[in-house]
Each structure stands twice: as structure tokens, then as C-alpha cells.
């Protein structure tokens, strides 16, 4: 199977999260999508585009331009001065032939290439729902409920019967959130 194109590179790595910078400005994977670097799987949990230099904020440039696109065309250096980064919550890793849905023994490597998982891989990964518990308990840049709903919505598209997948995931969540119906209700409401 041909390796999908790499989209980003790890620039900060911890056991539970890693951050990656995209090769293309705005070449971000969508919130909740499954990404992989090395053996580590992550779910995109937040993204930002900002100036390369922390102290130097971008300035408004579009007063005389007709379209937003024109701003970038008249200042081609912008794509080099800005960068898009995202954070991913680590949800599992490849352990030989087995795919584990718990935290890996080691964090990802800096400068590791990050790939967006293809539908086949997403389908394989989402056969079990161990990752839901990791997401529920992780400290994330976005609310866990939002992220879980986004991840499940995206994963369901890789399945032949998205509704059945969502029902199964919903039941798993209902078990995990058996004592917190309000959170469960909010997530379920965002699944469709």
C-alpha cells in the first residue's frame, strides 16, 4: 500500500499529546481526525495558525486588496512567516501486529512525519472504542465532548454503516458516562 503523503512534522512531543507543524500554511487536518506519526496514533485536538516568531504579530494588509487571496499574492513572504500547527491527543500505538488503544511507552519523536490516516486505517482503528476513555480523561485544548463528537463523526464516514457505528460508539459512551447523563446527552446531540 502506498504511503499517504505526509502533512506535518512533530515539533513537540509528550506522552499524552504531541504538536506538529504543517508543511503547508493552512494544510491542517480537520478537528477530530486520526493522524499517525511513527507508531503513535493521535486525534487532532486543536489547531492554530500564528506567526513564526512569537514576539512578532502579523499586521493587517488587506486595505487595498479586493480579495483575501490577493493579500497573500501581493505578499508572497507571508506563507513563510506564518505557520499552521495542531495538537494531537495520543490515543494509541502500533505494537507489532497489535494496535493498542492506550498510551504508548514512549512519546513520538521530534521531526517525526505526521500522516493523515486513510479510511481503511480509520476503520481498522475504530473497531474498538478504548480511545473514547482516553479522550474523556485527557486535558485538551478543546472541550472533550466536542472533540469526541467530532472524532466519532469523522470516523463514522469511514464505515459502511455510519449509523450503526455511531450507535455502538454511543452505547460505549453511555457506559463510560453512566454517572454523567448531561455530558452524555450533549455528546449524543452532536453526533449527527
Amino acid at each position: 500500500m502506498a504511503e499517504p503523503a505526509k502533512i506535518a512534522e512533530v515539533i513537540e512531543a509528550g506522552t499524552a499529546q504531541f504538536a506538529a507543524q504543517c508543511y503547508e500554511l493552512y494544510g491542517l487536518p480537520p478537528l477530530g481526525s486520526l493522524v499517525r506519526t511513527g507508531d503513535t496514533y493521535g486525534i487532532v485536538a486543536g489547531a492554530a495558525t500564528s506567526s513564526l516568531e512569537p514576539g512578532r504579530r502579523p499586521i493587517a494588509r488587506g486595505r487595498d486588496e479586493a480579495t483575501e487571496e490577493a493579500v497573500y499574492q501581493s505578499s508572497p513572504q507571508l506563507s513563510k512567516l506564518l505557520r499552521s500547527e495542531f495538537a494531537a491527543a495520543v490515543v494509541g500505538y502500533q505494537d507489532g501486529d497489535a494496535r493498542r488503544q492506550y498510551l504508548p511507552p514512549y512519546p513520538a519523536r521530534i521531526h517525526g512525519f505526521v500522516y493523515l490516516c486513510q479510511p481503511d486505517e480509520v476503520r481498522e482503528f475504530s473497531r474498538s472504542f478504548g480511545f473514547l476513555n482516553i479522550l474523556l480523561n485527557a486535558s485538551l485544548p478543546v472541550p472533550a465532548g466536542e472533540l469526541i463528537a467530532a472524532a466519532l463523526r469523522r470516523m463514522s464516514r469511514a464505515h459502511d454503516d455510519p449509523r450503526a457505528f455511531l450507535v455502538a460508539a454511543g452505547k460505549e459512551l453511555a457506559n463510560l458516562l453512566s454517572a454523567d447523563f448531561i455530558t452524555l446527552k450533549n455528546i449524543l446531540g452532536r453526533l449527527q
Partner: peptide, 23 residues
């Protein structure tokens, strides 16, 4: 969860009903 009885879910939505039944 006792909250279920206090603020019942929208069971008119078949998806919600299906998920909650048995869980």
C-alpha cells in the same frame, strides 16, 4: 443516573433512544 429521570432525553430521536436503551 438520576438525571435521566429528572431531565429525560428526547426519545423521539430514534438515535438517542437506541443508544440509551440497555445502557
Amino acid at each position: 443516573d438520576p438525571h435521566l429521570a429528572v431531565s429525560p432525553p428526547d426519545v423521539a430521536d430514534p438515535f438517542i433512544a437506541e443508544v440509551l436503551t440497555g445502557t
